[in-house]
């Protein structure tokens, strides 16, 4: 009688890149649905354009590199990149803006480095930061949420997206809450006065707060399924809370509450979906904690004192640059050997 002897590892995981990426997409759906409910059709137009353009760029890059299309397109990683880009950009972004972002994300940040698994920087965030620096005016005017002028009429809005014209809706766009806090405290207004404005909602920006809680739910599901590890989100949220808490206690009228920093802006989306990108993040357990903490600290510093309204994208890119060094210095001890 013969027994089949398999080589190690004896327990193999059925997970493939494709399955993991599809789980990330499932987890992104609730947050995106809430965003659509509050900000209208613009979120969906972003999503359709971003996915189409990213797939086009991906296919073109693969063709130029003489790689097979099917296995790489069916791993869904480029759809995740496109999806993150779509929810990061303001709703109803014109097509050319999404094209520039998608081009930089897929071609420069991903394929110049050899495609999935090699990119040192998060592709979606590279695309986002490029357009944020190149077109700051388009990137800082968000469609006002439902119940506050509301989104513009659907057909006209879609026509402007495809026509590429700068959308000039009367009163339909508004600064994001983070932007508002930064400019108004800069003018010397009290924070208690600013947060009374209708755009603030309950605790973190009307519309935004519910979308972010939905993203949190999706992120917790990913955590429970083991798609992402706890170290990065925990490190990021803990350091952000700690830092904002200290400054809030020193000067409650000049600095926003920790709750506002966590629920407002892109914190939760960043903590669970962007910072946890397995390719560009740190990989050692200790390195991951430091990586997450670094993102939290940098996010707060850029939000509180920097020139850009939200710092998550920059913080992620900066820590992407630090991640290889972190991995180098935090390699865990190999069993049976001394420290290094």
């Amino acid at each position: 009688m013969r027994f089949k002897t398999a080589s190690t590892p004896h327990l193999s995981s059925p997970d493939t890149v494709s399955i993991l990426m599809r789980r990330v997409l499932w987890a992104l759906i609730p947050g995106t649905a809430v965003l659509t409910a509050f900000f209208g059709i613009g979120v969906l137009s972003n999503l359709v354009l971003a996915i189409t353009l990213c797939l086009t760029f991906e296919s073109a890059s693969l063709a130029l590199r003489h790689r097979p299309l099917r296995p790489f397109l069916s791993d869904y990683s480029v759809v995740v990149t496109a999806w993150l880009l779509a929810v990061a950009l303001p709703p109803l972004s014109p097509w050319w803006l999404i094209a520039v972002a998608a081009g930089f994300a897929v071609v420069v940040a991903k394929h110049l480095y050899g495609g999935l698994g090699y990119n040192p920087f998060n592709p979606a965030m590279v695309g986002y930061v490029v357009v944020l620096i190149a077109y700051p005016a388009e990137l800082t005017s968000w469609v006002a949420p439902l119940g506050l002028n509301g989104p513009p009429p659907t057909m006209e809005a879609l026509a402007s997206v495809l026509g590429g014209g700068a959308a000039e809706w009367d009163g339909a766009t508004a600064a994001t809450v983070l932007d508002l806090v930064r400019t108004e405290t800069g003018r010397g207004r009290m924070l208690s006065e600013i947060t009374m404005l209708p755009v603030f909602g309950w605790f973190g920006g009307r519309g935004w707060e519910w979308a972010n809680l939905a993203f949190l739910a999706g992120g917790l599901w990913l955590l429970q399924r083991g798609v992402i590890q706890w170290q990065i989100p925990a490190g990021m949220l803990a350091s952000l809370c700690l830092l904002s808490g200290v400054f809030w206690m020193v000067d409650p009228e000049g600095f926003a509450t920790p709750l506002f920093h966590v629920i407002g802006g892109a914190t939760l989306l960043g903590a669970f979906f962007i910072a946890t990108d397995p390719v560009s993040a740190a990989t050692t357990p200790r390195g991951r904690i430091l990586y997450g903490m670094g993102i939290g600290i940098l996010t707060y510093v850029i939000r509180a004192w920097g020139g850009y309204p939200d710092g998550v994208a920059f913080a992620v890119l900066l820590m992407n640059a630090v991640a290889p060094t972190l991995d180098y210095y935090t390699q865990p001890r190999v069993f049976g050997h001394g420290e290094r």
Binding site: V108, A109, L112, Y113, P120, F121, V126, V129, V130, I133, L298, V301, I302, W305, G306, G307, Y308, G311, A313, F314, A315, L317, L318, N320, A321
Partner: peptide, 20 residues
């Protein structure tokens, strides 16, 4: 070439500090 691209992307990330 890829080193210069990398330096460019790092520079992009450092733009986040502008205005600090």
């Amino acid at each position: 070439a890829i080193a210069l691209v990398t330096a460019g992307l790092m520079s992009l990330a450092f733009m986040g500090f502008s205005g600090l």
